[in-house]
C-alpha cells in the first residue's frame, strides 16, 4: 500500500489578515505558519493509522511551495510518514498546484491519495477534484470516515441531509474532514526521527496558470452591536422582523 498525503502550509488560525503591495499580496510579516488543519488532523493522521495497522504501508507527503514550506513538511513528518516531497513552485492558482501534484502522483503509482477538505486561507476546496480529472481516478470529497478492506475502500461522505457510504476500488482520491481521524500531538521521538527522514525537492513542471489574483480587500466593519434589554425579548423579535427583516 502506497499513500500520498497532500500537505499545505497556511497561516495560523489567529493570524491577522492584512494585505500589502497595493492590496495584491497577503501580509506575511509576523505570521505563524502551520500545517493546514484538515491535512494534519485528518488526512495525515488517517494515513498514519493505516500504516500502524499494516506496517508495510509507505506514506509520502507532498507539498507544493517554496523553501519556507520545508519547516511545515518536517513538522508533518514528525507526526508520521516515510518521506517528504517538496515541489519547488509558488502559486496561488489551484490548477498549477494540482498539476504539480498530479505529476508526482503519476510517478509514484499511489494506491491512495489523501487531501484535506480545503486550505483555510484560500478555501478553494479544489485540489482533490482536479486531481481526479488529471489522473482519471475516482474521487470522494468531504469524507467523514475511511476504512480499508484489501483493495477496496469504504468511505462515508457528508451530504446535505446526512451521510452516504460508498465502496470504491483503489486507487482513489479522498478529501478528508472531521470524523476521518482524531488530531494527534507530535512527540519527541517523532520530531527526532523526522530530522533524518528524506525530503526530496523537485523542480516544478511547466504549466500555465488559469487564474490570477487581481487584489484583496477586507469586509466592511459591522456598524456596532445594538444591545437589547434581557427583559424585553418582544423588542428583539420586533427588530428581527421589522428592522433586519430576517424572520
Amino acid at each position: 500500500m502506497k499513500i500520498l498525503v497532500c500537505i499545505s502550509k497556511t497561516p495560523d488560525t489567529t493570524a491577522k489578515i492584512a494585505f500589502v503591495e497595493g492590496n495584491t499580496k497577503f501580509d506575511e510579516t509576523a505570521v505563524q505558519w502551520i500545517i493546514n488543519p484538515y491535512d494534519e488532523w485528518y488526512a495525515l493522521v488517517r494515513a498514519i493509522e493505516l500504516k500502524e495497522k499494516d506496517p508495510a504501508t509507505i506514506i509520502h507527503l507532498v507539498t507544493v511551495g517554496g523553501v519556507d514550506a520545508e519547516p511545515i513538511i518536517r513538522k508533518a513528518l514528525a507526526l508520521g510518514g516515510d518521506e517528504a516531497i517538496r515541489i519547488d513552485c509558488n502559486s496561488n492558482d489551484s490548477f498549477t498546484v494540482a498539476n504539480q501534484i498530479a505529476a508526482v502522483a503519476k510517478e509514484g503509482a499511489y494506491d491512495l491519495i489523501f487531501t484535506g477538505k480545503e486550505t483555510i486561507d484560500f478555501n478553494s476546496a479544489s485540489i482533490g477534484s482536479m486531481l481526479s480529472a488529471l489522473l482519471d481516478l475516482p474521487f470522494i470529497s468531504l469524507a467523514t470516515h475511511f476504512e480499508l478492506n484489501g483493495n477496496t475502500a469504504s468511505v462515508k461522505r457528508e451530504i446535505e441531509s446526512g451521510e452516504e457510504t460508498a465502496e470504491v476500488n483503489l486507487p482513489v482520491i479522498v478529501s478528508c474532514q472531521k470524523g476521518v481521524a482524531e488530531q494527534r500531538i507530535p512527540n519527541m521521538r517523532g520530531i527526532m526521527a523526522a530530522r533524518s527522514k528524506p525530503l526530496k525537492v523537485l523542480t516544478a513542471i511547466e504549466t500555465k496558470a488559469s487564474t490570477s489574483i487581481n487584489h484583496f480587500d477586507l469586509p466592511p466593519a459591522k456598524s456596532g452591536v445594538k444591545l437589547i434589554d434581557p427583559e424585553n425579548m418582544d423588542e428583539l423579535v420586533r427588530l428581527l422582523k421589522e428592522e433586519a427583516k430576517v424572520i
Binding site: I120, D121, T211, S212, N214, F216, L218
Partner: peptide, 14 residues
C-alpha cells in the same frame, strides 16, 4: 471569500 470569510480576493479568470 478567502481566509474563511475574513477577506475577499478578486480573481481574474484568464
Amino acid at each position: 471569500t478567502v481566509f474563511s470569510g475574513k477577506a475577499f480576493a478578486h480573481i481574474k479568470i484568464e
